[in-house]
């Protein structure tokens, strides 16, 4: 994309300024907020506490949690895939699969590794896939949330189209809550770095309570979710 086109900005913003009873502001310094309760949450929790909280919160969001060691990760992932019905598997293109000893998963004939070069064909495959396997970039203990920084390789579809997503959660990615994740993104943005086109916070399978406030799991996204926490320190 070239730079986008902006319409009607100045008239619009001038009106706002005049309604606010002043000229347009050129520079605003973000105040130091008086109230910042977000930093207090799980402030003193160690890695094990965070893991315990992550487990509980994931389960509360209907995600199955499995803990494993690095050496057993490949076997654990395989087992989880079978438990959820096997079939076609799609994964993101992520060097961590190799780093975590998951080459055998990628090499399996029933696994499709996202390949932007294949264009829309990837979407067709992901639509047919029973299971999508991804890595969590940041994992939030408070809410059992995995965070993905999507791009052309870490494609959005992998955690969205298959019936089940399996997220590999390196224990080192655990933080207390959203606060720590947004702080990282804020720092990147403040340094002028480009941030990922889709930063997705995902907490379990899709769901809805729109009919009589009854929670139904599995709407337009995945119907099942598995969080495999792997000790990596």
């Amino acid at each position: 994309m070239a730079e986008g086109i902006v319409h009607n900005k100045d008239a619009f913003l001038n009106r706002i300024a005049s309604k606010l009873g002043r000229e347009r502001t050129e520079a605003v310094v973000l105040p130091k907020w008086k109230h910042q309760p977000q930093w207090e949450v799980f402030k003193n929790d160690g890695a094990d506490d965070l893991l315990g909280t992550f487990r509980k919160s994931s389960m509360a969001k209907s995600a199955l949690v499995i803990q494993t060691e690095r050496a057993n990760l490949a076997a654990t992932v395989k087992e989880a895939i079978e438990k959820y019905g096997g079939g076609l598997v799609v994964t993101t293109k992520d060097r961590r699969f190799a780093e975590y000893g998951l080459e055998s998963l990628l090499a399996d004939s029933k696994t499709h590794v996202w390949d932007a070069g294949l264009g829309k064909r990837n979407i067709e495959i992901a639509k047919q896939a029973n299971i999508g396997v991804i890595f969590s970039d940041i994992s939030l203990a408070e809410s059992g949330t995995i965070v993905q920084f999507n791009d052309k390789d870490i494609a959005r579809s992998v955690s969205l189209l298959p019936v089940t997503y399996i997220a590999i959660v390196p224990q080192s990615t655990l933080v207390p809550r959203m606060t720590q994740a947004t702080q990282m993104v804020h720092q990147a943005a403040a340094e002028g770095k480009d941030i990922s086109t889709c930063i997705n916070f995902i907490s379990g399978p899709s769901n809805s309570a729109d009919i009589e406030m009854d929670i139904v799991i599995g709407v337009h996204g995945p119907v099942e979710a598995v969080h495999i926490v792997v000790a990596d320190k």
Partner: peptide, 17 residues
């Protein structure tokens, strides 16, 4: 369940965006 944060991208190289 989802907090989805979308930013336009300069490079049009994602298949699913």
């Amino acid at each position: 369940t989802y907090v989805t944060n979308l930013t336009p991208q300069l490079e049009e190289n994602s298949v699913d965006a």
